[in-house]
Amino acid sequence: MSSLVFATNNAHKIAEIRAQLGSAYNFFSLQEIGCHEELPETTLTLEGNARQKAHFVKDHYGYDCFSEDTGLEIDALGGRPGVDTAHYAGPERSAAANNAKVLAELGDTALRTARFRTIICLVQGEEEHLFEGRCEGHIAREPGGEGGFGYDPIFVPAEGDGRSFADMGTQEKSQMSHRARAMQQLQDFLTRQADQ
């Protein structure tokens, strides 16, 4: 069985992928391989950050690895917050502050189109593979919903029924989620490999 590190310490994410692909791969979190340092994210693109994190694990710990980076891109803000999505309003990574900053910057702007993009980088041996998931939508004029995290209260997916991600349950959100789409591409790729 091949070993593969998921560059996260999120137990829910690890459990989910183990359940889906555990018979073909032995998945490890960063903590399980003894990686306790903050992974570098110093490039100016989602692709660059995903690549940087996956290669860091491969280069320093020797494991094949995949990592992801996600950003919210708002057209009226020139694609911001983009790569700065998590700490748009400051280093404390406050979702409430990030949402408030976006709404303040947009003000009464009519153009509110936006998208979430997730990039996954898989490093296996000497090979690198990139997978992208995206979800188009728009920014609401005020937060709504009690669920979700991050920008979910102000992001309304285009293929939904007008509710924000925060108004949806986890299963409903995952049917159109950028991250779920990128993960599905990765899972399809790994499944094809395992079947060969």
Rank of each mutant, 00 (worst) to 15 (best):
S2N: 11
S2Q: 15
L4C: 07
L4I: 02
V5M: 09
F6Y: 15
N10H: 10
A11G: 01
I14C: 01
I14R: 10
I14K: 12
I14S: 01
R18A: 00
A19K: 09
Y25R: 03
F27L: 01
F28Y: 15
S29C: 03
S29T: 04
S29I: 03
S29G: 02
E32G: 14
C35F: 13
P40R: 09
E41M: 08
L44I: 05
E47H: 13
G48R: 12
G48E: 09
R51Y: 06
R51N: 02
R51E: 07
Q52D: 10
K53L: 08
V57N: 14
K58C: 02
D59R: 15
G62D: 04
Y63A: 00
D64M: 07
F66S: 11
S67T: 02
L72V: 01
I74C: 02
D75I: 13
D75K: 10
L77W: 14
G79F: 09
T85S: 15
T85P: 07
T85G: 04
A86G: 07
A86T: 15
A86K: 14
H87W: 10
Y88F: 15
A89W: 11
R93N: 08
S94V: 01
A95S: 14
N98W: 14
N99G: 02
N99F: 01
A100L: 04
K101M: 12
V102Q: 06
D108S: 10
L111P: 01
L111A: 13
T113S: 13
A114T: 11
R115Q: 15
R115L: 06
R115A: 09
F116Q: 03
F116D: 02
F116I: 00
R117Q: 07
T118V: 06
T118N: 10
I120Q: 08
Q124M: 12
G125E: 02
E127F: 10
E127M: 06
E128T: 15
L130K: 00
F131G: 12
F131Y: 10
F131I: 09
G133N: 03
R134E: 13
R134D: 01
E136F: 13
H138F: 12
I139W: 09
P143Y: 07
G144L: 00
E146K: 14
G147S: 07
G147V: 06
G148H: 13
F149N: 05
G150A: 08
F155E: 10
S164K: 07
T170Q: 10
Q171F: 11
E172M: 04
K173Q: 12
K173D: 13
K173F: 15
Q175D: 05
M176P: 02
H178T: 11
H178L: 03
R179W: 11
Q184M: 13
Q184Y: 02
Q185R: 12
L186N: 08
D188G: 06
D188K: 05
F189T: 04
L190Q: 06
T191F: 08
T191V: 02
R192M: 06
Q196Y: 05
